[in-house]
Design a protein around this nucleic acid. Structure first.
Lengths: 197, 197
DNA sequence: TTGACAATACCGTCCAGACGGTACAGTAAT
DNA sequence: ATTACTGTACCGTCTGGACGGTATTGTCAA
């Protein structure tokens, strides 16, 4: 197991996320975060001088972590068409397999001030651009992105209704979409070969 | 224009939703709702004895409205395969065309207490069951549901990154999926294995 | 017809507690 | 000396909600 000792910054960020889920995003208090992270309120405010800074860091950290995982998956697929969309799918699959909890801290940030999630908006837009730039079927890439965002959002909003079977079926169908199987695959059966222009 | 005479209940619910968006879901206060709805706090508390009851009503109202729109679309498609998924898609399209604001009140309810959205979870589960019960291609219905939920969630989370062109492309692709365009839709189990050739 | 009462739909005030943030003195390790 | 805190005390503000009062309308028996 990862019996690592965490930095206080990490402990604070984890505590914030855990508490946001437990008490509801609107009731995340600095006192509670400090207590949960195992330090005093003074110590917490030493690291993050305001609640806003703390929540910004929560969002930033989430983004950094997700990007790291995505780049890693991308690396192992260089050159393959739709590699980014496939990597995105795989990251979600992996998150799910490892039962990673939803980033409820992000929800707390949003609840506090909707502006706090604009880094995520920027990131997602860039991601979408990169996806489409190396895809020969924009619509499929888009649908994949959206369906996965849908699953992620459902988890984030504590509103997941899918069975494991359904989730598997979806992921398989998305993988098929990305490989060009599906509508008009009969007359464009050479997608894989003609991808490199 | 429309009828002007709204009941105080309606005014309150609308005020709550509008304010949740303006001040951030976590900062929705009874005082502000009362002021916006044009009555006193006492009056508000007369209609909704607690904040919890108010937020429950917000969620319930949202669900009722959505269900009404969905049933109407369904009605005009009786018997057609995938009619529910198609109706679901059409409801979203219509919401978007009419620029209906996202149900930010629901977000305030979630921020206050994640339990408040469990009616939505139940509703979505039932909807999914109904969708699949009259579909011959479960995976397509699921993907449609998810992609639309994805778009809806992005709007709700103030995180929409799609251009109008992209949204159109997605909806067209989803419509095609639902019509069963493409290869046989009976068994998609081993598509992955047969893709490399 | 009238007087008594009751239900509906609020208004205005007050308050205990929670929360974000400040201030500051002290400590232990580097 | 600096960094990274701890611990306590405190302040101003906001907020949910309780409470008592009020205006209007309706009901119904005498």
């Amino acid at each position: 197991m990862h019996g690592k000792k965490l930095s206080s910054r990490e402990r604070i960020l984890l505590a914030a996320t855990a508490l946001a889920k437990e008490v509801g995003p609107a009731h995340l208090s600095l006192d509670a975060v400090a207590a949960r992270a195992g330090l005093s309120k003074g110590g917490l405010l030493y690291r993050f001088p305001t609640k806003a800074k703390l929540l910004e860091a929560v969002v930033e950290e989430h983004l950094k972590e997700h990007d790291k995982a995505l780049r890693a998956e991308e690396e192992s697929r260089k050159g393959v068409p739709n590699s980014i969309a496939e990597a995105f799918l795989e990251v979600f699959r992996s998150e799910y397999r490892h039962k990673e909890p939803p980033p409820s801290g992000v929800l707390a940030a949003l609840a506090e001030n909707p502006e706090f999630i604009s880094p995520i908006r920027r990131y997602n837009r860039q991601l979408l651009d990169r996806m489409q730039a190396q895809s020969n079927d924009h619509a499929s890439a888009l649908v994949t992105f959206l369906a996965i965002e849908g699953m992620r959002s459902m988890q984030l909003l504590d509103c997941d209704v899918l069975t494991d079977t359904e989730r598997d079926a979806i992921m398989q169908r998305l993988a098929a979409l990305l490989r060009g199987v599906g509508p008009d695959s009969t007359d464009t059966g050479n997608i894989l070969e003609t991808s490199g222009h």
